[in-house]
Design a protein around this nucleic acid. Structure first.
Length: 688
RNA sequence: GAAGAGAUAGUUUAAAGGAAAAACAUCGGUCUCAUAAACCGAAGUUAAAGGUUCGAUUCCUUUUCUCUUCCCCA
């Protein structure tokens, strides 16, 4: 039996369901349904990632325990998935994975032990205990290198570039994963299996990132600081880094390292991870290294999809209020229309634009006026012209000429191969994750059938006894095409497909019909068609848009500030502590230096390059953003205050080995002034 | 400022060293089985400039613009 395993990311249990969750899950759902329809033993995983400092904080803020917090979010997601018929009950996911479940603890502990037991490709220990000192971004759940944060003037606490939120200073014992030993191996594996990371542009980004060199990864936190996590095996003082914990869900869910679940050997080698482009790095660099370290097979595919932007191509955000609301989608639109839009309008792998208007236009243009109307006119004609019974599609030779006269090809081979071609294309595109193109192909078939009807004009054929067989053939071909269409489209629009399938009079469930084995003519003549009803009612765009506007207006106005239980807000860093101790101050080594060399840096309008004598062996090179305020020549010989123990940093290709102190106001328009002394001071003197 | 990606019709997308395509939108027409549907027809596109070539929209160079990442008081 053919095996297939598809995963969405497990969603972090600190925010309420949003379009991103819905999107990835719908895609995975469509893939899973398609594979199952084709007889694959397909396993579909989604769920929640429930550990880490963020959960702890979110829980505290809401006055809940962490467990209550994750139960709440997992419950909300499940409810949303149920509303959108993505849950097990409705033929969707097979498991809603939760990382707080005991079997996951078992599995991930086993993974840790397996990794620890092995050595890296370079023969070193994979995991070692060290001391971590650095900045950690809780929302990212990631340690930040110095190029990943910045500091605003007047503050010591750097902000995460991504979240623009204060980072946490972490200084504690930590276990490290020797990621640095895996860079060459990763590059080799990716180059040998380029098809395993898609799309190509994203794969190149990953390769570039690896080639920059990898740093060892801290994979634990001290329990006294972060308690909400999986304990590190044999060390009760530590819990695992949330990404190690989270990523491993994909294997523990199918029974790795535990006996509660099963299927690891069967499913794991066939896994395809769908991820947002923002977390591709974790799912390739980190995850693959962990897997290699544990001696496990790598995923068959990690596919990074794009993000939904608003109708104007801007990022959606709650604060701007341009986010698409799941509730609005649920209340105002057919689920199948939403699914169709999500799969049709975003080219998988690129960013897409989502506006309610776009959705309505798609639903009306493609679904109501396209597929829906074709179904309606076909069924209606069979009712009217043939008393609701499907006629034979065969034209006997004496009537060939009449068929031709009615612009209908008497030979049905043409339509048979059109159907087969559409089916083959759909399968090929689906297997290749090209949903948008898959649907385009199907719609060109719809157009073709519509045209066949318009060209042969059944309403005229009915008036001519010599055209009985021609009319029969038109009706048969149309209804048979409809049956095929419903089978092909089932994964994208399960309910509508079943409805159309039933209207053609075909027996059974469309979900069980394998498109690969569809045969033209399987719908027997003499079958009574089902009851006709509109599958995709036309949407009154103006009316719906007005309703949506009114609702969102009333929703936003009276209760503007807090969205009830959601959203983590950071405690404002300012009010926490305004004082530092003398020890804190003495960490900063301020020294007097004399400027020996001062010059501009070509093509940098703000930067000056200094060489400053601090009484050390040789002068230091220090860069400062003073070019707009000082002429370099005037500065030579001046004594300045230098932060001497600042970590060196590259700027514009030069290393800056310290910082020159200058007075400046918050507003950077004001001219800064270099700190100086009235008395004579010795070079190298420390300020304290 | 650096690196990478990109720029195709009003819009969203496709294809390609040898006549650039589809859908939606627009305009004109036909028709009535159907959800004021459908069908036919029209108009409209390779960002700009150079170069290689028999031929370039495709390859190369430059420019402009967009996006991403990084960066200019450490």
């Amino acid at each position: 039996m053919r095996i297939f395993y598809v995963t969405t990311p497990i969603y972090y249990a600190n925010s309420l369901p949003h379009l991103g969750h819905l999107y990835t899950t719908v895609v995975a759902d469509a893939i899973a349904r398609h594979k199952r329809q084709r007889g694959f033993d397909a396993y579909f995983l989604t769920g929640t990632d429930e550990h880490g400092i963020n959960i702890q904080r979110a829980a505290e803020k809401e006055g809940r325990t962490p467990q209550e917090q994750v139960d709440f979010i997992a419950g909300e997601l499940k409810r949303m998935f149920h509303d959108f018929r993505l849950d097990t009950e409705n033929g969707g996911y097979d498991i809603f994975m939760r990382t707080t479940e005991p079997f996951h603890y078992e599995g991930v502990s086993r993974l840790w032990r397996e990794i620890a037991k092995n050595t890296t490709p370079k023969g070193n220990s994979t995991i070692y205990k060290g001391f971590y000192e650095g900045w950690f971004c809780a929302p990212c759940a990631a340690f930040k290198l110095e190029d990943e944060y910045y500091t605003v003037e007047g503050s010591d606490i750097p902000l995460c570039r991504e979240h623009e939120r204060p980072l946490d200073r972490i200084a504690e014992e930590s276990y490290f994963f020797r990621l640095s030993d895996y860079a060459e191996e990763l590059v080799r594996v990716i180059e040998e299996n380029p098809e395993r990371i898609r799309p190509e542009a994203r794969r190149n980004e990953v390769l570039a990132f690896i080639r920059q060199g990898l740093q060892d990864l801290s994979i634990s936190r001290e329990k006294k600081n972060v308690s909400w996590g999986v304990p590190v095996p044999d060390d009760d003082n530590h819990v695992m880094y949330v990404w190690l914990d989270a990523l491993s869900n994909y294997i523990t869910a199918v029974g790795y390292g535990n006996t509660e679940k099963t299927g690891f050997d069967k499913y794991w080698p066939e896994v395809r991870h769908l991820v947002g482009k923002d977390i591709l790095r974790f799912h390739t660099v980190y995850w693959w290294s962990f897997l290699m370290a544990a001696g496990l097979p790598l995923p068959r595919l990690v596919y990074a999809h794009g993000m939904w932007l608003d109708a104007f191509g801007k990022k959606m955000s709650k604060t701007i209020g341009n986010a698409i609301s799941i509730d609005v989608l649920d209340r105002h639109f057919q689920l199948d229309a939403v699914r169709y839009f999500l799969l049709r309008d975003m080219v998988f792998g690129q960013d897409g634009k989502f506006g309610y208007e776009n959705l309505i236009e798609r639903a009306n243009g493609d679904l109501a006026k396209g597929l829906g109307n074709l179904a309606s006119r076909t069924i209606s004609m069979i009712e009217k012209y043939r008393d609701g019974v499907i006629p034979s599609g065969k034209i006997s030779e004496p009537f060939y000429l009449f068929a031709k006269r009615a612009s209908l090809n008497p030979d049905e081979q043409e339509i048979v191969s059109a159907l087969a071609h559409t089916r083959d294309e759909l399968i090929r595109r689906f297997d290749n994750f090209e949903f948008s193109q898959a649907l385009e192909t199907v719609w060109s078939l719809i157009t073709r059938i519509d045209k066949m009807i318009s060209d042969s004009k059944p309403w005229e054929l009915i008036k001519d006894d010599n055209q009985t067989e021609t009319l029969n053939a038109v009706l048969y071909r149309a209804v048979e095409a409809l049956r095929w269409l419903s089978v092909l489209l089932y994964p994208v629009m399960p309910e509508a497909a079943q409805a159309i399938y039933a209207q053609t009079g075909a027996a059974g469930e469309v979900s069980k019909i394998n498109p690969e084995t569809l045969k033209y003519g399987e719908l027997p003549a003499g079958t009574a068609i089902g009851e006709r009803r509109a599958v995709f009612p036309l949407i009154d765009k103006v009316k719906i848009m007005n309703e949506i506007k009114e609702e969102t207006a009333t929703e936003n106005k009276p209760a503007p500030a807090p969205e009830p239980p959601a959203a983590i807000e950071e405690p404002s860093p300012a009010e926490e502590e305004n004082f530092i101790t003398i020890d804190d101050f003495l960490k900063v080594e301020l020294r007097v230096g004399e400027i020996k060399v001062a010059e501009r840096i070509p093509k940098a309008d703000k930067l000056l390059r200094f060489e400053i004598d601090l009484g050390e062996e040789k002068p230091r090179q220090i860069l400062a953003g003073l070019a707009q305020y000082y002429e370099p020549e005037n500065l030579i010989g001046r004594k300045v205050v230098v932060v001497a123990n600042l970590k060196p940093r590259m700027m514009r290709g030069y290393e800056s080995q310290g910082m020159v102190c200058a007075a400046s106001l918050e507003n950077s328009d004001d001219t800064p002034a270099l700190a100086a002394f009235l008395e004579d001071v010795k070079i190298g003197a420390r300020l304290k």
